[in-house]
């Protein structure tokens, strides 16, 4: 038992610094992509409130491309094709750009649904009270949007973390890339893939727990379910 386990443990321990770096890189990409795509997605969704049909059409076309084309294809485009156009971002830069483009398409849909879920009467009440639109959005509409989108946003974010494994295809040394490299010289795919799975599952679990806590807080504080009405 000891003899069977210890070489495996030794391997994990010796690879641990690399896995730690890879995990931190995965998290960094996730945070940057989430912050950027959430911000842009929210602003784009807000812009559709008063905007004409052309903006909706532009956003629809954008969503059609970046939700329709496989993530791998978009990452390869950012990594291999953009340098041909003079934009060489390197592997991590290409992955961040690609994932941001993809995630933004989804975040726009999430926030559009969130805004649609706020009762029309809320806007009307704010207008009737003479509250300017920016204040109304910040104080009245957005807190309600946050409640509505909490579940879909975290569901998508959980997927986002896992999707970063695709970046291994464009030479980003995230978890999957390190795992593949380790398999190549140690011939321990079973243990290594199990270990990589555990890392992904841990990160996703943290997000899922965050969702449960958020849902409970909304319920305690406002008696409001995070379920869509």
């Amino acid at each position: 038992m000891d003899e069977a386990l210890s070489p495996t443990m030794d391997m994990i321990i010796s690879l641990w610094p690399r896995f730690l770096d890879a995990t931190l890189l995965t998290l960094a990409i996730f945070v940057i992509v989430s912050v950027m795509s959430t911000t842009i997605g929210l602003l784009a969704a807000l812009a559709t409130i008063g905007a004409g049909r052309w903006l909706s059409m532009v956003l629809a076309a954008y969503g059609w491309v970046f939700r329709g084309v496989p993530e791998l294809v978009i990452l390869l485009f950012c990594y291999l094709a953009l340098p041909q156009l003079g934009l060489d971002l390197g592997p991590v830069g290409a992955a961040v750009l690609g994932f941001t483009l993809i995630s933004t398409a989804y975040e726009i849909e999430i926030f559009k649904a969130g805004l649609a879920g706020v009762h029309r009467g809320q806007f009307e009440a704010a207008r009737a009270l003479g509250i300017p639109l920016p204040s109304a959005l910040r104080r009245i509409v957005l807190p309600q949007v946050v409640r509505i989108v909490a579940t879909p946003w975290i569901t998508y974010a959980t997927g986002s973390i896992k999707r970063i494994s695709i970046a291994s295809a464009v030479a980003v040394t995230e978890i999957m890339q390190v795992t593949k490299q380790a398999i190549a010289f140690s011939h321990q795919p079973f243990t290594l893939i199990l270990f990589a799975s555990a890392l992904y599952a841990t990160m996703a679990s943290i997000l899922m727990i965050a969702e449960i806590i958020a849902a409970r807080r909304f319920k305690q504080r406002f008696g409001l379910s995070t379920e869509l009405p």
């Binding site: 009762h119 809320q122 009307e124 009440a125 009245i140 309600q144």
Partner: peptide, 8 residues
């Protein structure tokens, strides 16, 4: 008619 109080 629908009150429209701010629920939060």
């Amino acid at each position: 008619q629908s009150y429209n109080l701010f629920p939060h």
